[in-house]
Computed example of a mutant assay.
Amino acid sequence: MTKVLTSPGKYVQGKKVIKQIGDYIKNLGEKALIIADPIVKELFLADLETGLKNFDYEIEFFKGECSKVEIERFKKKAAAEDADIIIGMGGGKTLDTSKAVAYYSQLPVVIVPTIAATDAPCSALSVIYTEDGVFEEYLFLPKNPDIVIVDTEIVAKAPVRFLVSGMGDALATYFEATASAVTRKTAMSGGTPTMTALYLAELCYNTLLKYGVSAKKAAEAGVVTEALEKIIEANTLLSGLGFESGGLAAAHAIHNGFTVLEETHAKTHGEKVAYSTLVQMVLEGRDPAEIEKVMNFCQEVGLPTTLADLGITEVTDNKILKVAEASCSKDETIHNMPFAVDAEMVKDAILAVDALSKNFNK
């Protein structure tokens, strides 16, 4: 079987690198459309302007949802401005929108995350939602971003919840890649996992367990430490390469299932993925000690381990079955698991995690 590893053209990470952004992108184009979260104008515009002092650009602000309507709006803006490069600056949905706009506009894309909340920055994928925030589909892109630039000082000053959320998203990487490697189904890279991808996924997991708590404390203080640098790299690069070239399985499918419940919409992607990773572990029948280890990590850093943590305070079998049925949709990645999975199994595993967590807290 053909093995494939895919990655961004260049990955740049460090303190204050936003002030050198022009040096990294100068060979990609002459005029940029910057798709930015509104917070960029308030907090980072001066540093961005310093980095782009010799560059022609226009800034347009993201409205909050990576939807087809929003993608079309920016596509028209890029054409109207005669842009020859797209720069996405903000959180995961802003970055996914930027990648989609660049794809439809046939332009290079530079990704500048302001948080380390997901592995979206490095991937050749955009997750499309309805305007109401319900998962709609994956947009698979023909290539990864041309450049990813991560200013760790910016990430350190972001709300700590986003860093923790990124750990939740990254937590799934190892478990999903391990499951996908057994079935040898084609990953998003276009081939089966390489040894490199699987080792990167394992490194991601080990880095989270070793440095996660210390990195959270650094972020709470708003400072950049080596532990924080390692977790930002795990959340962004290791998780991105690991999931895309290693494969997805149950955890992200169950995350998508949770989006059908309106009460979960206030929770981040990574928060839902963390709980869903525990659900996958229960489905697999993993050693209870291993499940307890991951549950303990989640609780230490502040990731959800109960349905109440996800905002689901009124739990019924029918409600959880709706989540499970959505998780098991025909094209979902849950079917990459090395055994057949149905909605009833997923429902039971979701409820089991909730019960295990409550018992674990006693």
Rank of each mutant, 00 (worst) to 15 (best):
I86T: 13
E262R: 12
F44M: 11
K76T: 14
K267V: 05
A234N: 01
S165A: 14
V155D: 00
V301W: 04
E136G: 03
A179E: 11
N336A: 06
G92I: 00
P121C: 05
N54A: 08
S98F: 03
Q280V: 06
V224T: 01
S126M: 11
D84T: 07
T207K: 01
V101S: 08
A234E: 02
G51K: 09
G190W: 09
V294N: 02
M195H: 13
A274D: 04
I291H: 05
Q280F: 05
I35V: 14
D146R: 03
L228V: 01
T277H: 03
L228H: 00
Y24L: 10
G133L: 04
L200N: 11
F140T: 10
T259H: 07
D317F: 01
A46R: 13
K362D: 10
E49A: 14
F140K: 09
I71N: 07
P142R: 06
I154S: 00
K319H: 01
E202Y: 15
A274M: 02
V101N: 05
A187K: 12
L310S: 03
V315P: 02
Y104F: 15
L163G: 00
L33R: 08
E176Q: 10
T178C: 06
T183Y: 10
A274R: 02
L52D: 11
F339Q: 12
K75M: 11
K3A: 13
V182W: 03
K216W: 10
F258A: 03
A78E: 06
K77N: 05
D96S: 10
S180I: 05
T114I: 06
E202K: 15
A46C: 07
I128Q: 08
D37V: 05
D23M: 08
G222C: 04
N27K: 14
L278R: 01
Y11I: 09
L52V: 12
K230D: 05
E292T: 13
A124H: 07
N318I: 00
I34G: 12
D96N: 11
A100K: 06
V315F: 01
N361H: 13
L203I: 07
P304A: 07
T313F: 05
I232W: 00
E271F: 03
C298L: 07
K68V: 14
I147L: 09
D151R: 06
V134E: 06
F360L: 15
V134N: 04
G64R: 05
V109D: 01
Y57T: 08
V69Q: 15
T225W: 06
L125M: 14
C328V: 04
S98C: 09
E244H: 08
V4T: 13
T236M: 01
L228R: 00
T173E: 09
P304K: 09
L95Y: 02
T207A: 02
A80E: 14
T173A: 11
A181D: 14
V150I: 12
M89L: 13
